[in-house]
Nucleic acid binder design. Structure first.
Lengths: 221, 221
DNA sequence: ACTATAGGTGTACGATGTACACTTGTCAAG
DNA sequence: CTTGACAAGTGTACATCGTACACCTATAGT
């Protein structure tokens, strides 16, 4: 046989396969632990093989971020602007929850096609709903700041990776010990768990507040 | 002389000095370029010398973040809650602008004393202004999501480091070339620069929107 | 005067991104 | 059928990073 076992055993690499594996690896390992060498291993290949399909790690990250953008639902054209914004906001949060490594990079990297399509569609939805240019910019800015900021916090607070549970518990103990002087933090720590806190509900609450405010301003104009 | 020149020349290290130099270095070099070795060099010392004053890089980062927290003004007690929140929000944004490396880490690290004091004071301000526990939690959540999210975006968009200007310009050209299909992005690119966009104004706008909404809800309750 | 200790040094190891030179498997043109 | 170009994968090597560990040295307390 002319083809050796390895090649018979595994499919050949491709940009798409590398990208997909990269996202999967980042999803489960986190951004810290995401390395070219680890990715290569996951693909059963030597590290340098990746560079035949990707320029370098930076560009790979750019593309990974654009994959996340591609998973975000565009504001549906058949809904009123408020519902459309709600849908795309929730979809964004969901995507960032699935790919929390991406949170800090969504706006900082060379924008890919999915990114451009998304921004264009959101802005378009607002403009066509009657928002003036200035108001649309404001509206876009608040919403995205809120969405990304919420994702950031949510990600940080659900900090409890399974293996760091012990350490986390100990830190909690230290912190709670030092909490005597902070009555309002004590209140949070004691009341919040028993209040059935749900971060999806929390997200929707703040989103509604913002959308309500925008709606008022839009009607005034 | 018993003390050799080196020691006579430079002050001895200390936790505080290391911390201060670390923040300064991160401020001007960015988080990517911030390394223990670089920090040691800045202090005129061998890398391992730092470890006599700091446990490791992670803990150093924890402390650096708490320094940033310490620069944030607490909500002034002599103002109505809305003004107090406005003050501390703007102060937070200012601190994050000065130390943009900290943006992604403000909530994800082991909380230091300044962090605890800040959170306690903000929550206390709301509660004492008559916010119910639930409403105070909501109010806190929206505000901080907005503040950190805005800082994140602002930091990303002002991406133009001096030496990357050429590259940035080229990328801009590429992007604009590909912008034909995105009319609303074209509108932004053309109208925004000539509209005298000011990010401080933008920040205040969104903040007002949120605080107005919160005020309404508080009065209803 | 002696000795414990705190602060600074030097060397070394494993991990990372990736440059560069190489093999090899495939396919088109002669 | 040969040839030779080319795309894909390999192997070695280097700079840089965080930091473990053993060592030196100057000062302070007895």
């Amino acid at each position: 046989m002319t083809t050796n076992q390895k090649i018979a055993t595994r499919k050949p690499l491709s940009s798409a396969r590398v990208l997909q594996a990269a996202v999967a690896l980042a999803d489960e390992a986190g951004l810290e632990a995401f390395s070219m060498r680890g990715l290569a291993q996951e693909l059963g290949v030597v590290p340098m093989a990746l560079y035949k399909h990707v320029a370098n790690k930076e560009q790979l990250l750019d593309r990974m971020v654009d994959i996340v953008f591609s998973e975000i639902e565009l504001p549906p054209g058949d809904l009123d602007w408020r519902s459309a914004m709600q849908r795309r906001a929730i979809s964004t949060r969901d995507a960032l929850k699935r790919h929390s490594w991406a949170i800090g990079m969504m706006e900082s990297r060379h924008p890919g096609p999915a990114n451009l399509r998304n921004h264009n569609a959101v802005m378009g939805c607002l403009r066509e709903a009657g928002f003036s240019f200035e108001l649309a910019i404001h509206a876009y800015s608040v919403q995205d700041a809120y969405i990304y900021g919420f994702a950031l916090q949510e990600n940080d607070l659900g900090f409890e990776t399974p293996d760091s549970a012990g350490e986390a518990a100990q830190r909690r103990a230290e912190t709670i010990g030092a909490l005597e002087n902070y009555p309002y933090l004590v209140e949070i720590v004691t009341k919040l768990p028993e209040s059935g806190y749900d971060s999806a509900v929390e997200f929707a609450w703040g989103l509604d507040l913002i959308l309500d405010g925008l709606d008022r301003l839009r009607r005034e104009a």
